[in-house]
Structures are given as C-alpha cells and as structure tokens.
Design a protein around this nucleic acid. Sequence first.
DNA 1: CATTGTCAATACGCCAGCGTATGGTTAGAC
DNA 2: GTCTAACCATACGCTGGCGTATTGACAATG
Lengths: 188, 188
Amino acid sequence: MASAAENKRLSARDWADAALDAIARGGIGAVSVEPLARQLGVTKGSFYWHYANREALLVAALELWVQEIETLAAAAREVLEPRQRVLDTFRLASGRHRAHSAYATLAAHADHPLVRPALEQVARRRMDDMTQAYRDLGLDADTARQRAQLSFSAYLGFMTLLRHLPHDSMTAEAYEHYFEHVAATLVP
Amino acid sequence: MASAAENKRLSARDWADAALDAIARGGIGAVSVEPLARQLGVTKGSFYWHYANREALLVAALELWVQEIETLAAAAREVLEPRQRVLDTFRLASGRHRAHSAYATLAAHADHPLVRPALEQVARRRMDDMTQAYRDLGLDADTARQRAQLSFSAYLGFMTLLRHLPHDSMTAEAYEHYFEHVAATLVP
DNA sequence: CATTGTCAATACGCCAGCGTATGGTTAGAC
DNA sequence: GTCTAACCATACGCTGGCGTATTGACAATG
C-alpha cells in the first residue's frame, strides 16, 4: 500500500511525496501529520525532524505538485504538431499521473492562501501553452486565447466529471472516441 | 454578514442554509457545528435541537443543493430555443447562484459517501438535458452525447477556472465575449 | 570503539470540535 | 395567568490532531 519501501529511513522528500498522494486522495485536509505517519509506518517523531510543522509540509507538497505539472507540460511542449500538443493535454486528464488527480482536488481549494498561488501559476502557464498551440494552428491572438480558455476549461471539467460517474461508464475505447470528438470540435 | 435576520429563532432550514453557504465557501470540511453556531449568533445547543448530528446537517444541506440545482435546471428547460438552452447553462457558471459556487467545491469531494450520490445525480440529469438540447439542434444521438459531455466539462471547468484567476481578470464584457466564442465553437 | 549526526519512539500538554445532559427562556394556546 | 412546546445556553466529557521535549537506535567516520 505505502509507496515507500518498508523498513527504510525516510527523507523529507518521502513525506512530501506522501503528502501529495494524500492531497490527490482527500484534499489538503487529508494532509495530517499523525495519519500520514501511521501510513508510512513511523510516528510523528520522524516528521518533526524533517519539517517544522504541518504548513511546511503543505508548502513542500505544493511545490512538488507544481514541479510535476511543469515537467509534464515541458514534455508536451516538445511535441511539434500543435494539434497533437492540444490533444495530449486531454489525454493527460484521464489521470494516470497523480499530479492531475491532485489538480482536480486542489481546484476546490482556490481560497486557501497556500494553494491559490500554485493554482494561479499552473493555470496561467498551461493557458499560455494552449494559446500558443492555437496560434500555431493559425488562429488570431484573440480567438486563440478564447479557444485556449475553452479547451482548458474542458480539460479541467473532464477530470472532474470522471470522478463523478462510475468508473465502468467509460472504457478505453470510449476515451478515444471522446477525444476524437473533442479534436474535431475544438481543434481547427 | 449572516444571511438570517438578527435576534430571531432559527429553524432547521436556517441551519441547512448556513451549511450550504459554508460548503460553497470552504467545502464540506467547513460544515462544523460550533463555528456555524457562532456565525449564526447562537450556541450549539440550538443545533442539536434541530439535528441529530453533523452528518444529518450535511445530508440536509446536500438535499437543499440538489433541489436548488434542479430548480435552476427546470427553469432552463423552459427555454424553447435549444441554442439558448445550452448557452444559459454557461451563463450560470459565472456563478451568482450559490448552488453553482457549491458545485465547484463539491466537485472535489467525489469520494465522500454522502456527496457522491448527489454529484452523480446532478451530473446525469444535466448531461441528459444538454444531450437533449443538442439533439433538438439536429445532432445524432451519439454526437449529441459527446458534445454534451464536452459542453458540460467546459461548464464545470470554467466555474473552476474562474476561482483560480484574480477576479478582475474578467469583466462582464469579457464574459459575453467568451460566451460568444463558446456558442460559435460548440453550438451548431 | 568512541563520537557524531541522522532518524525515530515515547510521553506529554494543548486545543478545537463533537456529542450529551440539563436547565433556562419565550411565545402562543387555553 | 398558567402550561406547554419550541428553542437556546451552559457545562461537561471525549477524541483526534498539533506541536514539544526527551531519549533511543543505528550508521558512518575517524
């Protein structure tokens, strides 16, 4: 169950890792020291050696999240075809990466003072990426921006929607079928 | 600040009302008896007269939420033009209705056993409405379903996105501008 | 093998929120 | 005016999670 190996000493990174997993599952409220310690098979004596307090762990987990998203985004930017660049974003929404699971959860905590700047940064950057992709596809600046906003909204909302409906309601083929429709509708 | 009037006795509905407001602001975690009591200007002695426990309040608040969404949806169904029917949904996302603010927040708690059925019901019904609207616009059954999913995702995501960016980044005119783009892109 | 640094266990005090018990206040019925 | 039901305050015990202090285990280094 626990991602970290058994009977090994932990690092600050291990705690941030577990915290990000917790965020993906239950939101920032799920980032609690003692339950995480139990899950990791240690006591909080370990935690308070690595971090000053719970808030510091939250900061570290959010930094980790932003970094993971940026890594995925950087990989997507390498794709030459702008059309594929847009569609790849949607494929990520199907959510094998925990960073995207966490996104759907963090999206609800926009009011949190630590979460907000992270969300804002990620939203801006990915919107800029998408706008650029649409510009590369020949749209004018204004239209590209609107289309990027629509696409990014659809991406965010699809991640959310997937968690509302039973998992069996969408097979792998259904995914691809949907993505084709998205491509035909949104991408010129 | 408190929506209820001062120096008046409270009803169970007043509590459910305050709980739904709390959900819209801070998620289900914000539905806590004693803070709500303070906000309402009473003590929890009042609460435990009206409800058995916190969970009962959550149930009541969620029922209230579903009911408010259904009321808005019923009004939207009255619109004859299917094109307007679709666009009205997006206008609601700009979110002066608390039911839609709550939606954006509840969307992140799909794992919660009480929240999930409410989300599922709302998602299904609104998707059905949208699918019907697209069918009325002449799309075949399969395409209408896909387009409804895309539209509903865009609606959900836009609600979310609005909370990530500073409020001043979108004026009323910008809203309308965006909606026109959505209409031109999604609605045949 | 002694020392030092790294990581973890234990034990403690603290606080916020839940739920209960019980008594007090107020409005309207009669 | 009394009675009763609806509503609220107060006081209490309980639990879970935060943070601190102290000690212990173990590895690496010399």
